[in-house]
Design a protein around this nucleic acid. Sequence first.
DNA 1: GAAAGATTGTTGTTGACGACAACAATTGCC
DNA 2: GGCAATTGTTGTCGTCAACAACAATCTTTC
Lengths: 164, 164
Amino acid sequence: MTASAAQTPQRKRAVNGAARRIDTDEIGLDALVGHAGYAVRRFQIWIFQDFIKTLGDVDIRPTQYSVLTVIGANPGLSQMAVAKRLGIERARLVHLLDSLEQRKLVKRIKSKSDRRSHALHLTAQGETALTKFKRLAAEHERHVEEKIGKANRERLLQILAGFT
Amino acid sequence: MTASAAQTPQRKRAVNGAARRIDTDEIGLDALVGHAGYAVRRFQIWIFQDFIKTLGDVDIRPTQYSVLTVIGANPGLSQMAVAKRLGIERARLVHLLDSLEQRKLVKRIKSKSDRRSHALHLTAQGETALTKFKRLAAEHERHVEEKIGKANRERLLQILAGFT
DNA sequence: GAAAGATTGTTGTTGACGACAACAATTGCC
DNA sequence: GGCAATTGTTGTCGTCAACAACAATCTTTC
């Protein structure tokens, strides 16, 4: 008796190379169903896809949105501060800001108090754009509500509040 | 008045390049706190990091674990079936299986009923290894419990059950 | 005040991953 | 028999996390 047979009732026997035709929904996930990480991962992929699609016209991805939002709410932050707050590598933020600055949504202003760092600001154009992005993001959020239910979404936010 | 100022009380004024020294926890996330996607993303990153660390000794990553688990519970599946069930690109599964087959955990057996496809099986070594992986994964799951609470983890699994 | 150490932004590399496109071999359909 | 669909494979592209190294600039220490 193999170890896995002991804890996993194998529903199919195919010791030869049979490869029965099988519906997707009759494939068991076994231990996976008890793992939060698996469900969370699948959900996160769904969310990002919907976000990207909903904000497709304005070509803004989740990470870009988070950067713009934080800068908008805290003008003058350094790149280091933004990176730390959002859990982004500062190396990665460089490229993100390059892109956003090219699109005239953000500007890096040389800090006078610390000449190593940049103070980050939205441009005027960036501020009006962000308002639109927020509107679209709210629409995306409604899609999430429709998907898992209003109450469940609230509970989810509450459960995961510690990770923000 | 700018549009964003209307809905976002800006706590700091730094129109010059000041770049005040600021604690991470006094940086506001603004609209981000209301977005499920942000919390879910941060949580998912935390989970994966813990999973990778907890299964670091055996060098198994979440995706590899999911593939092994599904094959273990459904021996004889084709690559297409596994890919579809787990939401993995079949192109990506090729590399995953190459790696797992090199490590003698999985074997591809040519199907006789459909000579295009492979029937996937765990090796004997793969089965005993998977038992160990499951033990470690369960340990990881306990870390999740400690992080968000036993009841919250249960509720989370329930809320996201539709995505598995 | 000079030397040593830390921080900030930048560049580059690596590897995991999702998405797509193209292809040969094979199967299923009409 | 011929044509469309499927399966595994190879390849490319872009996103992302994780590091490492570097120059410029603070900060600390002696």
